[in-house]
Design a protein around this nucleic acid. Structure first.
Length: 675
DNA sequence: CTGTTGAAATTTTTT
DNA sequence: ATTTCAACAG
């Protein structure tokens, strides 16, 4: 096939603006892509275009926000190219394009060149909760729990630390701006963080933030930096509005001239400033790269016009820099609904009723989603869904891997991989009867000498209570450290040792044991332990609790998601619940004008997820669920973002008026028999 | 030093 | 409802 007809085929499905972006040359390119304007398609086709123009896949880097996004894009590029050329492309593209999150790709380079920074080859990655545990260990060591006032919780400490790193601001300023209630602890926190940094080095562990910092450091090294730079001819960054300063620096160090750089984003959808993301990155891209070209995509392919009108009205009061006005060819459609409910219970009833009605009319459950600001907002709804046997998957909530017993099992593996890993070591050792934090510390000190080995443990009997189990434990660790067994076999051995401990350690040992089996299953898909551990730290699989009452429905489930986790996704029917002032915007974010602006964008992101039907619901009062509750506001108002102008774009109703007798409420079971 | 119990405090979103 | 901390028994 000739190049020109290949070009035609790549460009054919695209609109003129998208084509412009796809065919753009090597000067830096900023694609300002409004919600639903075919951003992913544009990136995918641009990569395909590059490959078709003899840019070798292994010289293309595709940086995305989630691992899943990267995988999907690379897969789509592959599909396009193989369909168009009619032949199989040389090699497996997916493995040849450098696709992944900043963190994942950073890790890849650190595995290759980490020694240049003095990183030991077996270093392990701490996920968020590991980092918290680590901080907690140090916090008790430093005896920061004084009696007069309470020290911030480990999670808050980790938040503060991470914010400090990702925004490159001094601790004092971070506290003043984002954690004013912790200001008085400045000196203690400072000591804590210094110690944390030092101990991470000692234990050969990197947290998420370190992955970025170390990657940047690598790029700043003359030899490695140029070695990495010369490997790449094209670098594409998705969701650029949600990158932070370090990430922008990484990009700059990867391609100082901006040659071959494409960034894609939407300043109206910047919602990750709590993670240190800086909207300046996208706004100042044209300044940083003066020869940059800007292409704006405004034609929306996702939603109907009435939904877009509402979305445009919601974002209008924001001070967007790259003004966009989304439009669609789908002129007709139902106006979105603004639903007032008496309380959360009535809201849940309404939502479920509507979901079932849409389902009856042929919309699968998985094409419908309920979105909310904070993970716990969905709890009343979940209770009701469970009661009625409606299956759902929740995203952004608790992860499968965060369950204590799963973390335990993984800690065995991590410790075997890196005997110096303090968090994993503490975790594993404290599981054994008769061993607490103090003994665990001593034992870890004994085995962390000369790079770390478990041999010294063979000579020790740590305590009478542990006398029985200790030799077995040491055998297990020695065996795992040898690394001869396959990964599933290793996990199996861990299970044999660990499962008998479950009943002593936790309630419900039986379901937990089942989870361990499942973990073994998951592990069988991975080649080696190191990859498995890294993947699982960087990309924890979302727990998919199956509440399916009916096995036929196992493959269809309603989606519940936080708005943050809904980024980039779309559904036919979208419900936004708890759209009250105090939830959207969240009470915790009303401190500064900037954070209120971010909440507005968050609401905008939620609204623009809907393709055909949109319901924005708000309960007018809250239950004072328990007298213990310190949040017992009686009356709630609808979100301040639902201005009169925005409200006009909705049909206002009350949940009650839609609610008929419970008797004619459609049920999943009844409809099921009809299928 | 470990493991348990009860009282007190408690700020969302996630790679 | 959950997490943290202090006090106390073994």
């Amino acid at each position: 096939m000739s190049v020109s007809s290949l070009e035609d085929l790549i460009l054919k499905p695209l609109n003129p603006r998208q084509q412009e972006a796809v065919t753009h040359g090597t000067d830096p390119l900023l694609i300002v892509a409004g919600a639903g304007t075919g951003k992913t398609a544009t990136i995918v086709h641009r990569v395909a275009w590059l490959v078709a123009h003899n840019v070798p896949p292994h010289t293309i880097m595709l940086l995305t926000f989630t691992r899943r996004a990267a995988e999907e894009m690379v897969r789509r590029v592959e599909t396009i190219l193989s369909r168009l050329s009619g032949t199989q492309l040389p090699g497996n593209l997916a493995t040849r394009i450098w696709g992944g999150t900043f963190h994942a790709i950073g890790l890849r380079f650190l595995r290759m060149f980490g020694e240049e920074l003095g990183l030991p080859p077996g270093f392990t990655v701490l996920d968020r909760s590991d980092a918290e545990d680590f901080i907690n260990v140090i916090r008790t060591d430093l005896k920061l729990a004084t009696t007069d006032r309470r020290f911030p919780k480990k999670g808050t400490c980790a938040d503060i630390y991470s914010r400090m790193v990702n925004t490159c601001l001094p601790l004092r300023q971070v506290l003043a701006e984002f954690f004013p209630w912790c200001k008085e602890w400045h000196d203690e926190l400072d000591r804590l963080f210094r110690e944390y940094t030092a101990r991470k080095k000692e234990s050969a562990t990197l947290d998420y933030d370190d992955l970025l910092l170390a990657w940047l450091e690598l790029l700043n090294k003359e030899s490695v930096g140029s070695e990495i730079r010369k490997r790449f001819r094209a670098i594409l960054v998705d969701e650029y509005q949600d990158t932070n300063i370090i990430q922008a620096n990484i990009l700059y160090r990867l391609a100082p001239t901006g040659d071959g750089v494409t960034v894609v984003g939407d300043d109206a959808q910047a919602i990750y400033s709590f993670r240190g993301a800086s909207i300046k990155n996208i706004l100042e891209f044209p300044k940083q790269y003066p020869n940059a070209r800007i292409v704006t995509l405004e034609q929306n392919y996702r939603s109907t016009m009435p939904i877009l009108t509402a979305a445009n009205a919601i974002i209008r009061p924001a001070k967007e820099k790259f003004t966009k006005n989304l439009w669609s060819e789908k002129k007709t459609g139902e106006k979105p609904w603004l639903v007032a409910a008496l309380d959360e219970y009535e809201q849940a009833q309404f939502v479920i009723r509507r979901i079932l009605e849409h389902h009856n009319q042929g919309t699968l459950l998985r094409h419908q989603a309920v979105l909310f600001r904070a993970s716990h907002h969905s709890l009343p709804l979940e209770a009701e869904l469970t009661r009625r046997g409606i299956p759902y998957h929740k995203y952004g909530g608790l992860k499968f891997l965060e369950a204590a017993h799963i973390k335990d099992a993984l800690a065995f593996l991590r410790l075997a991989e890196n005997p110096r890993d303090l968090v994993a070591g503490m975790r594993v050792l404290c599981l054994l009867p008769g061993i607490g934090p103090a003994k665990a510390r001593k034992l870890l000190a004994a085995c962390s000498v000369n790079g770390g080995h478990f041999d010294p443990w063979q000579e020790i009997t740590p305590s009478p209570t542990a006398a029985d189990i200790w030799p077995q434990f040491v055998q297990l660790m020695l065996h795992l450290a040898e690394g001869k067994a396959t990964l599933p076999a290793q996990l199996h051995q861990i299970r044999v040792f660990y499962e008998p401990l479950l009943p002593v350690l936790y309630d419900n040992p039986i379901p937990r044991a089942k989870d361990l089996e499942q973990l073994e299953q998951i592990a069988s898909r991975f080649k080696d332990r190191q990859t498995f551990l890294a993947q699982i730290a960087l990309d924890p699989p979302n727990s998919t609790q199956d509440f399916a009452a009916n096995p036929d429905l196992n493959d269809d489930y309603l989606v519940l998601s936080t708005i943050h986790s809904a980024k980039g996704l779309e559904w036919d029917v979208v419900f936004i619940i708890n759209a009250t002032d105090g939830n959207i915007p969240s009470d915790m974010a009303t401190g500064s004008p900037e954070s209120i602006e971010e909440e507005r964008r968050l609401f905008y992101v939620a609204v623009t997820r809907a393709k055909r039907y949109l319901y924005v619901c708000y309960p007018q009062s809250y239950y004072t669920t328990s007298s213990l509750s310190w949040q017992n506001y009686g009356i709630a108002l609808k979100s301040r973002f639902l201005t009169p102008e925005a409200t006009q774009c909705f049909t206002s109703i009350t949940a009650q008026s839609m609610e008929a007798d419970d008797a004619d409420l459609p049920t999943l079971a009844r409809r099921n028999t009809a299928l």
